[in-house]
Design a protein around this nucleic acid. Structure first.
Lengths: 250, 250
DNA sequence: CCAAACTCAAGCAAAGTCGCGCATGAATGT
DNA sequence: ACATTCATGCGCGACTTTGCTTGAGTTTGG
């Protein structure tokens, strides 16, 4: 069991079940209470959770939109998102995928005159007070730990709408250009999103080549643009370009 | 049981049921009265509640969605909502309408084992952290001023789901039993909700007889129960009963 | 106005939690 | 092969929380 994997499990458990005891976490991830305590201390230092006596609680406003605006150095991932936001023209209809990557893009759309369609609850909270943006939320079952809406209602809705541009997240791109995802339940939603959009923009930051994922979302022929902030694997890039995909390195 | 979790339960109980005794809280959260007193003292220091002799009362802050409504009416409307929540059995699927009335019902559903379907964004925010409740959000265009989702996506989704019970709000009930609404865009959504539910419960607090509204939502034959906190107009009640509607005065 | 009933806060013992030091064991570098 | 590093698990003393008891304070009803 990798420490990083354990940290992920802890954070996921907290997001799903709220405040949890050290004993319960130790049992859940199969580590001693001492180890869990050390993990919690570390994760608290990183601001990823709040330590309470006897356990830990999830921190609510983890993605403060002003945190990185105030920061001197803009994160690399944010540069990616900013570039994507520039791609969008006023008046367009933009479809935003599940995940933090799409949320990042949404932060850069404030004040723009757009229609935004999403099943991403983080995007909803980000843009709900922005009166310039017409916001359309797709239906579905609320997944608390992933802050998303999924299910047949989401897919149904996606068959009824059309977007000029889709910003798609991923967990990995294989050398042959196949786009992957780790969570099976999201794949049908992502496919429906692709079908509902004229242009598909894939956001693949560093570490997504080859990345992980057990489910295939789509092949390179479905993509129009791949945006990345890392010099991707040469072979992968060539394969994508062969399929007519524009590969952009920010 | 984490102290933090206990505090949440206390605050939730206060929000849902208003002023509560120390004894009742101790029983509810499974702690001693001494612990509850210590919790209350701490929470009062943080300004999260107001201590009163024998118990505690919720503090009405700016985040209270009902701060604008006058005191005695809030209690009456909350009694209505509490009665409706008692109507629901564990395991049921509940459909909650747009509007503050349905939100009020949602506040009394905390901790219940239910499936809740709604296009009410206030309900979503109320229940999003409640892990006992499976929450399904209907798609649609976000209406910021009404905190709701409307449009053809909402209606489409409603054709794909079914609920045991619908709690319907209204702006007025005419003497002949017709249910009215003021905003035309909501009417198709309300009709679709009625069609998707086995039982329809109309919440009509004081001032809804005859109330206002330019659009007809449905006739009395679509309703199963009308819950009110005021002795409604005699003629209206008779007309409703003739149509087979159970009229309940809380 | 008084007394009974109830509520509150302080003190105390028990249980639970925390963080530290130390030993173990695996992975890594020399 | 040996030493180093690092994460992990265990034990111990210090600390925190909890529930019970007690005496003082507050409310209620006659």
């Amino acid at each position: 069991m990798l420490p990083d994997r354990r940290h992920q499990l802890i954070l996921r458990a907290l997001r799903a079940d709220g405040p949890t005891t050290v004993v319960a976490l130790a049992e859940k991830v199969g580590a001693s209470q001492a180890t869990i305590r050390r993990d919690l201390a570390q994760l608290e230092d990183e601001g990823l959770l709040k330590r309470v006596y006897g356990g830990a609680a999830p921190v609510v406003g983890e993605d403060d939109p002003f945190a990185d605006v105030a920061g001197v150095r803009v994160e690399a991932k944010d540069a990616l998102a900013a570039w994507c936001a520039n791609l969008v023209r006023d008046g367009e209809t933009v479809l935003l995928d599940i995940g933090t990557t799409a949320h990042r893009v949404a932060r850069h759309l404030h004040g723009r005159s757009l229609t935004v369609i999403t099943s991403n609850l983080a995007v909803y909270e980000e843009l709900q007070d922005d009166k310039d943006i017409q916001l359309i939320l797709l239906g579905g079952v609320v997944r608390r730990d992933y802050r998303s809406l999924v299910g047949f209602l989401t897919e149904d809705n996606l068959r009824q709408v059309h977007a000029d541009r889709l910003f798609l997240g991923t967990s990995g791109v294989r050398p042959d250009g196949q786009v992957l995802d780790t969570t099976a339940v999201e794949v049908p939603v992502k496919r429906a999103m692709i079908a509902a959009s004229t242009h598909v923009v894939l956001l693949a930051d560093a570490g997504k080549f080859p990345g992980t994922g057990m489910a295939r979302v789509c092949g390179p022929e479905e993509l129009d643009v791949v945006v990345t902030n890392a010099p991707g694997d040469e072979k992968t890039c060539n394969r994508l370009r062969e399929a007519g995909v524009e590969v952009v390195e920010v």
